[in-house]
Structure formats: structure tokens, C-alpha cells
Write a protein that binds this DNA or RNA. Structure first.
Length: 875
RNA sequence: GGACGAUUAGCUCAGUUGGUUAGAGCGUCACAUUGACAUUGUGAAGGUCACUGGUUCGAGUCCAGUAUCGUCCACCA
């Protein structure tokens, strides 16, 4: 007999198991012979850090589906990769060199900086890959991609060229979000809004040729230097007479018109607004519509420009104080109020955003020739993508409907440069530099992309780099090798995409738009959102809070399987879930349980082996038939739930079968009525059913039987054998089960010592030994005609328990009376339902039939209980 | 302001196309060391499914509204 330790030790075997899988070659779909395919291009984590629990959660879901499909015999590809993550990585690396070497990127220079960051990403990628393997993800590492790999990048840049030709991208002056710290423009989605305490400052602007004033309210007094109008709502009675007049801009002594615009809210502040088109998004819109001048008074370094008069050169905050003081001296400061203001901050470095006008590259998401957003909405509405959970489809559509043009140029160094060249006024867009060009001639950045316009007579490449999401939005087909790659041809459109709900607008939405535009097809057929993982109190994990759970120590301590279960069990797609150590521990306990079923099986029979097929002749007892029948139902239901992408319910079904049915009942009974073949058969099936969820322990056990000759990973997913489903066995087994439970109940409620066997009478009772053992009774003789016994019965099993001396008769009477009352009310309820004409005509036949049966069942139970109550009178 | 989500046992959460007496884990209480497992077993207590109305033979589930909490988007100068 094999010596099997009491507990499964994950850290001892997980690495070996993973190696076994990897060396088998079956992570690579080329080694699977099948006409069916399954592909999930994995979301590439940012190659600048390490794996966190959010990655682990996503990978677990991806791996569950991937392993399931592989066991179903499909050529299965989980394609891993890493993303260069432009701004974020640049920020991370700048911090690193600042800390370690005390230098800034300018001191290194663009080219060298780029090379260093590249090396850094390669290093981090390697580390992260090792972490990903520890989660157990069955990805094909031979195909691993990096977002700056030349092949994939070329495809992504070709898209830009195509979009340029189709008029879907343009370079233009628009107001953008400028991060003074990162020194780059940002897309709207890269800006966070944070509410803070601030001041609302009321300034009086004199009306020209009058001694009157008009008051405006602002949270940023310094921007008044760039005011080119004052706007009021046309319906505002208060200002009706002032529309069309001219105000004098204090400090600058500039004449500005008073205009009317419907976007001005009458109730807020004074109802009059200073308009600074160059430094506020709404003002910019209004300025465009009213053809106002745009005066840039703040530059990319957050300093006042020459247009700011005597404040030129001052930092924004400094200018604010000075403007404030000067207005105060002039008596033009009316008052100041406290106000909650919504500050825009950079997602990556948390610096306050400076809205300013800049010449940037934009994607026109609603172009005449091809509307990216409308095509995406259309595809969704046509049901080309199954979205899990379903309601996220509405969120996506809503997001598209509100989508504005997308700024894709960044003034950072880390990332792919625009395939655009300039010579004087000429512009060339294409993958290769035109003749005479010198693509390596990038110069130091000034923040103004126009500086790339060389005047030297040579072609000079645009210095801008792409927004990361421009390339990652194309990930599904760039990684597969659009349009001629073998993988593209066999795996696109992919089957599954899984991501956290927080990156829906960044990523899911863009992949759909790009996929449809470039390939004419959706990038994936199923889109599954996970919720966010939060801490025990429901807070988001964050570095500053220090409440994150690092997945790797958890794997060390409890095993990857336990972590996987804790991340996906009892969860709903798109719904946030909490994670904490006790929860992981609880699932570790489950793996121990599974292990011990295995251990028991070996101990009970020295030739124990797993068995793939079984026939009805092998089923000797009610319990055998019951457990095998229940197993078939479990196979059916588990499969059904996975197909419906409901992994949580699939696992719940399996857990109930494994723990409640198999371990707590069948294994206990098996100790008396041994049937190693049935046990081996059931065990084989649960190993397979559990494998996608907990791959390590299941494979480990499987290898104990197969010693590397066969892999559980590529074993066939079980199919239910309907001939083994016995519709009647459940009721039959329930009699046995219920009688045992009844006795246990009696023991518990009357405090009968668990160690003491209760004498009972009922010699011919079926399942005698099982009842004796599991309920700890001693059947000492036949039922007698008389005597102070408590009779219990379930179906055809009846026992007389000799416990008169041990129990409290009154208590038992009360219990029986209560049960009788419950049964009576249930019966009355069903009777009324069955009397209801509408129910009889409206409800399906099965339901009516079920109700009738249930009523019969209750009635027979009621009779028994009444009889028992009567018997008690004898005591 | 717009969109979306949540509200079910003390806590954390499941609950499939509407159909038994609404479930699990943890926690609590009582008992147990019986041939795997104390990382265990047995049993118990604990819920007017947020509220109001509607549809239906039948509602935790569908519809409308209300309340509270939360998320995202837009944004008030």
C-alpha cells in the first residue's frame, strides 16, 4: 500500500506539476489534433511591476475556461503577453532612476532612455512570467508577445496609416488634458476626478462706458488673464440688458464682449461666467461656437506665458496669489466662498491637470467614411458578442454613445513613435521613412509636437508616441498575425476575452472598434467581465493603503488551487468580491478534503485504482446506485453551468457532490459496504470535473496512478452516462439517510451521549449495519408488539428505539406537535393551490403533478407523525 | 445631471428560463477523538429576501416607484 501523507503539500509538488504540463507540449495547440479550436488572447499586464491579485483573479477565470475547452478536445490557445504601458512605465522608470541614480530622463537622453526602459521591461516580464506560471495558467509561452515586438507593432502602425488614409485620424488644435509632470497630453479616460475643498472667487469686471460691474465666479482666478468673453444664459433676466455690451478685463485692460450661451447655468455663482477658451474644455467649446480668440496664458510647464502680461514666468499658484492680491487692491474682489471643487488629476502621477490647447493627433470616432462608434454599437446590438454579465452590454453602448474624439499622441519617450514624417510643410504618413529621411533624428522634446517640423530640408519623424491603448486596442489581431498569419487564420475571431470591469472603457470598447474596422469582424465572441477584488472591509486594494494581498505568499502558504478557488467561488461576473486570508484558508480546507478522500480510498483497498467506466452490474447496493446516479447529474449540471459561463454555480455543484454526497455519506458507507470499483469510478470523474478549477492537486493525484504516462490536463471531460441515472434511487436512499439523521437528531436534542449505543429493535431492517454504524445504535432484536419504545420510520424502514429512560417525553411531544402543525399548514396550502382552477389550467403539467406528489408525501408523513405522537402516550 | 450596480441569516456571499418548506461558508451554541480528514464530524439556533404598489394560478426572481449605499461617465465657472 502506498504511503500517503495526511495533508497535501502544494509547495512540494506545484512546480513539478507545472513543468510536467509545460514539457508535455499541450499548452501549444499545434500539438493537439482536432478540428475544433478555442482561443483566448490573454490581457497583457503592464511589464513594469509584478502580479497582483487582480491579475490572479482574471487568469484563474481564463484558465478555467481554457482547461475545460482543452479537455473537450479542442486545439486550445491561451496566448500570453506583456504590455509596454507607455506613460505608466515611463513614470515608474523615472521614479526608479531618480531614486537609485538621482537623475532625470533628460540627463540620459531619449534613445538611451528608451533602451534602458526596454531592458527594464524585459526583466520585469521575465519575473512576471514566473509568477503567472505559479497561478497555474496553461498558456502557450512559446507564443508569448510583447507590445513592442516588431511584427505586432507593424500591424498596429499599419492601422494608423490606413486610418489616416480613410480620414479617421487627424492632427489638430484642440483643448486637451495636459499633465505638467508627465509632460504629455492625456486622453479623457486617463484623467481622474477628485473632489476637494476649494474657493470660489467672485471678481467684478467693469462695464465699458459705465460705472457698473458684472460679477463672475471662478475657482481659478489666474486664468482671467486669458479671458476673451463673459457669457450669460440667454434666458437670464438679470443680465438681459448686458448681452452685446463690452466689459473691461481687469489687470489686462482688454475689452471683452458679453455674450449669451445656453450652456451657462443660471443658478450657479452669479450666473455670469468668464470665458477662457484656451484653458477650460467648456469654454473652449463656447469659444469655438462664438469664434472667440484663444489666448494661451499658461504653458506646458504650468507657467504663465508672455500673453499673461506682468505675470509672465510665474508658476500657476504664484500667479493665482498675485492676481488675487492685485484684484483685491483694485477693489474688484467681491467675495470668496468655500466650495467643493472637482479637480482633474493625472491617473498615473496624480498631478493636477492643466487643460490647454495643443496640436495633437486625434481619432475621429464618428467619421463620415466609417464610424468606429456606430459600427461597434451595431455589432453589439446584433448580438455578435455575448457579454457576461449581460447588462455590461448597455454600459458599453452607453459609453460609445457619449464618446468624443480620442487624443492618441503622447509627448513621452517610451512607446512607439508616430509613422509620420515632415519636411517643411510637407507631411508623409507611412511605415518607412521617405527617401532622405532619418527616422532616428528625434530631438529633445519641448512638449510641442510642432517642433518636429524640421526646417532643415530633411524628412524628420514626428516625435509623438502613441497612447498605449492604441496598440493594446489591437491586441487580438496583432498578436495572432493579421492578416496572413496561421494563427490569425485559425483563431480569429477569438472565443473569449476576460477582463476586470474597470478597464471596460479603456480596452474592451477599443478592441471592438479596432477589430471591426481592421478585420471586419469582432475580436472575440464572448466578453466576460470580472469584478474587482477588494479587501475584507470592501476597500479597493491600493499601494498607499497598504491593504493589498500579494498572491505569491498566499500560494506559498495555501497553494495555488486554494487561491484560485477563493478568487472565483461564490462570485458573480462583474460583481466585486472580497478576499482575505481566512477565505483562502477555507478553500485550502477543501483541497485537504479532496486529498483525504484519495487517502482513504487507498487505505481501504490496497489495489485501489481509478476506473473510467462502470456498468450497472458493478453497483451492488442502494448507496452505490445512489452515488453513481448523483454523479451523472453532477456531470450534467456542472457542464451546463460552465457552458453558460457560470463557473461559480458549477463549482458549487461540484463542492456539494464532493463534500456532502461523496465524503460525508458515500465514503462513510463505503467503510461498511466496500466497493472499490465504484469509489475508483467516482473519484476518476471528480478529478476530471475539478481539474479546470484546481489543476495542481487533481493532476498530482492523477499522476500517482499514471506516473507521467497520461495527463489529466488532456483527459476527456466526463460525459454523463444516462443509463446510470436512477430516478427512484434517490427516494430509496433518502429513507436510509433520513432514518440516520432522525436518530442523530434525537441524540442531539435529548443530550444522549454520542458514545453510547442506543438499543433498537427491527431485525429485518434494510441497511442494518449502516444504520448501526452511522447512527450508533445496536439493533438487538425484532420489533415487539408492546413496550416503551420510540418508533421512527422512513418509508419501509422502521425502528423502535429503546430510549424511554433517556428522553424528555414532553419535549418530544412538543416537537412532534410542531412538526404536525407545519405539515398541516403545508398540506392546506397545496390543497388550496390544487383547488384553484387557474392554477390547474395555467400551470405546466409537471408542476401540477409535482404538487400532487408533494401533498401525498406530506400526508403520509403527517400520518406517521400522528402515530408517533400517539405512541408517546404509552410512556 | 446621465448610466449602471447593490440591498437575502450576526458577517461574506450564492440563488439558473418565475414553480418544494429560500441556500452555502464563516461565526455562535451543544455534542463527538467511531478504520481518510480537528485543515474534521454530527446536530441546533438564526431570514416578514430594503420598502410600496403592480403583473401572474404562483414573485427573492418580472414591471413601476421610493429609500439607502456604491461604481463609472459627464461636469458647475
Amino acid at each position: 500500500m502506498k504511503e500517503i501523507p495526511k495533508n497535501y503539500n502544494p509547495s512540494e509538488s506545484e512546480d513539478d506539476i507545472y513543468k510536467l504540463w509545460e514539457e508535455s507540449g499541450f499548452f501549444n495547440p499545434d500539438n493537439i489534433d482536432s478540428s475544433e479550436r478555442y482561443c483566448n488572447v490573454l490581457p497583457p499586464p503592464n511589464a513594469n511591476g509584478e502580479l497582483h491579485v487582480g491579475h490572479a483573479s482574471g487568469y484563474t477565470v481564463m484558465d478555467i475556461f481554457g482547461r475545460y475547452e482543452r479537455m473537450n478536445g479542442k486545439k486550445t490557445l491561451l496566448l500570453p503577453g506583456k504590455d509596454h504601458a507607455g506613460i505608466q512605465t515611463q513614470v515608474v522608470y523615472e521614479k526608479k532612476i531618480k531614486k537609485e541614480r538621482g537623475i532625470a530622463r533628460d540627463e540620459i537622453g531619449r534613445e538611451k532612455f528608451y533602451d534602458e526602459v526596454y531592458e527594464f521591461c524585459m526583466d520585469r516580464s521575465g519575473y512576471m512570467r514566473s509568477q503567472e506560471k505559479r497561478i497555474g495558467i496553461s498558456a502557450d509561452w512559446s507564443r508569448e508577445k510583447f507590445s513592442l515586438d516588431p511584427d505586432g507593432l507593424k500591424i498596429a502602425l499599419e492601422t494608423f496609416v490606413k486610418m489616416y488614409e480613410d480620414g479617421l485620424v487627424y492632427k489638430g488644435n484642440r483643448i486637451i488634458n495636459w499633465c505638467p509632470s508627465c509632460g504629455t497630453a492625456l486622453a479623457d479616460v486617463e484623467v481622474l476626478h477628485k473632489e476637494e475643498d476649494g474657493k470660489l472667487c467672485y471678481i467684478k469686471y467693469p462695464i465699458k462706458d459705465s460705472d457698473e460691474f458684472i460679477s463672475v465666479a471662478t475657482t481659478r482666478p489666474e486664468t482671467m488673464l486669458g479671458d476673451t468673453a463673459i457669457a450669460v444664459n440667454p434666458k437670464d433676466e438679470k443680465y438681459k440688458d448686458l448681452i452685446g455690451k463690452t466689459a473691461m478685463l481687469p489687470l489686462m485692460n482688454r475689452e471683452i464682449p458679453i455674450i449669451s450661451d445656453y450652456r451657462i447655468e443660471m443658478g450657479f455663482g452669479t450666473g455670469a461666467v468668464k470665458i477662457t477658451p484656451a484653458h477650460d474644455p467648456l469654454d473652449w467649446q463656447i469659444g469655438k461656437d462664438h469664434k472667440l480668440e484663444e489666448l494661451q496664458v499658461i504653458d506646458e510647464m504650468s507657467e504663465i506665458t508672455d500673453l499673461g502680461g506682468k505675470y509672465a514666468g510665474q508658476k500657476v499658484m504664484e500667479a493665482r496669489r498675485n492676481v488675487f492680491a492685485d484684484l483685491s487692491d483694485l477693489g474688484l474682489l467681491e467675495k470668496e466662498e468655500d466650495l467643493k471643487i472637482n479637480k482633474s488629476i493625472c491617473e498615473r502621477c496624480k498631478t493636477v491637470i492643466e487643460p490647454l490647447i495643443s496640436k495633437q493627433w486625434f481619432v475621429n470616432v464618428d467619421a463620415k467614411k466609417y464610424s468606429l462608434k456606430k459600427e461597434a454599437i451595431k455589432a453589439l446590438k446584433e448580438g455578435k458578442i455575448n457579454v457576461y454579465p449581460k447588462n455590461f452590454e448597455n454600459i458599453l453602448i452607453n459609453w460609445y454613445e457619449n464618446l468624443n474624439d480620442w487624443c492618441i499622441s503622447r509627448q513621452i519617450w517610451w512607446g512607439p513613435q508616430f509613422p509620420v514624417w515632415y519636411k517643411g510643410e510637407e507631411i508623409y504618413v507611412g511605415l518607412e521613412a521617405p527617401d532622405g529621411g532619418n527616422p532616428d533624428s528625434a530631438k529633445a522634446m519641448t512638449g510641442n509636437p510642432d517642433s518636429a517640423k524640421a526646417t532643415t530640408g530633411e524628412w524628420v519623424q514626428d516625435e509623438n508616441t502613441f497612447d498605449t491603448w492604441f496598440s493594446s486596442g489591437q491586441w487580438p489581431y496583432t498578436t495572432l498575425g493579421f492578416p496572413e498569419g496561421k494563427d490569425y487564420k485559425q483563431f480569429y475571431p477569438t472565443d473569449m476575452m476576460i477582463m476586470g470591469r474597470d478597464i471596460l472603457p479603456f480596452w474592451a470598447a477599443r478592441m471592438i472598434m479596432f477589430g471591426l474596422y481592421k478585420t471586419g469582424n469582432v475580436p472575440f465572441k464572448n466578453l466576460y467581465f470580472t469584478g474587482l477584488i477588494r479587501d475584507k472591509e470592501g476597500h479597493k486594494f491600493s499601494k498607499s493603503r497598504g491593504n493589498g494581498i500579494d498572491p505569491l505568499p498566499m500560494i506559498d502558504k495555501y497553494g495555488a488551487d486554494a487561491l484560485r478557488l477563493s478568487l472565483v467561488m461564490d462570485t458573480t461576473p462583474g460583481q466585486d468580491a472580497r478576499l482575505y486570508e481566512e477565505k483562502i484558508e477555507r478553500f485550502r480546507n477543501f483541497t485537504t478534503k479532496l486529498w483525504n478522500i484519495y487517502r482513504y480510498s487507498n487505505q481501504s483497498d490496497e489495489n485501489f485504482n481509478i476506473v473510467e467506466e462502470i456498468s450497472t452490474e458493478d453497483l451492488k447496493t442502494v448507496s452505490d446506485r445512489w452515488v453513481v446516479s448523483e454523479l451523472q447529474k453532477t456531470i450534467q449540471e456542472t457542464t451546463k453551468f460552465i457552458e453558460a459561463k457560470n463557473i461559480s454555480l458549477a463549482q458549487e455543484k461540484l463542492r456539494v457532490f464532493t463534500w456532502d454526497i461523496l465524503a460525508d455519506w458515500y465514503v462513510e458507507i463505503n467503510k461498511i459496504e466496500k466497493n472499490a470499483k465504484v469509489l475508483g469510478y467516482v473519484f476518476d470523474k471528480i478529478l476530471k470535473l475539478w481539474h479546470p478549477f484546481i489543476p495542481f492537486i487533481t493532476e498530482k493525484i492523477f499522476q500517482d496512478f499514471h506516473a507521467g504516462k497520461k495527463l489529466l490536463m488532456v483527459s476527456a471531460w466526463p460525459k454523463a452516462d444516462e443509463s446510470l441515472i436512477d430516478e427512484n434511487v434517490s427516494a430509496e436512499f433518502d429513507n436510509l439517510k433520513n432514518i440516520i439523521t432522525r436518530i442523530r437528531n434525537i441524540r442531539s436534542s435529548y443530550r444522549i451521549d454520542a458514545a453510547m449505543a442506543i438499543d433498537a429493535y427491527g431485525a429485518e431492517v434494510s441497511g442494518k449495519e449502516i444504520i448501526e454504524r452511522l447512527a450508533r445504535v445496536k439493533i438487538v432484536g425484532s420489533a415487539s408488539e408492546s413496550g416503551n419504545f420510540m418508533r421512527i420510520s422512513e418509508g419501509d424502514i422502521a425502528l423502535d428505539l429503546d430510549i424511554a429512560k433517556l428522553i424528555d417525553v414532553e419535549k418530544e411531544k412538543t416537537r412532534l406537535q410542531n412538526e404536525i402543525k407545519n405539515l398541516e399548514s403545508s398540506i392546506t396550502r397545496i390543497e388550496n393551490t390544487l383547488k384553484n382552477e387557474k392554477f390547474l389550467t395555467g400551470a405546466p403539467k409537471e408542476i401540477i403533478e409535482e404538487s400532487r406528489n408533494r401533498m401525498e408525501e406530506y400526508k403520509s408523513k403527517l400520518e406517521t407523525q400522528r402515530e408517533l405522537l400517539g405512541n408517546l402516550g404509552a410512556f
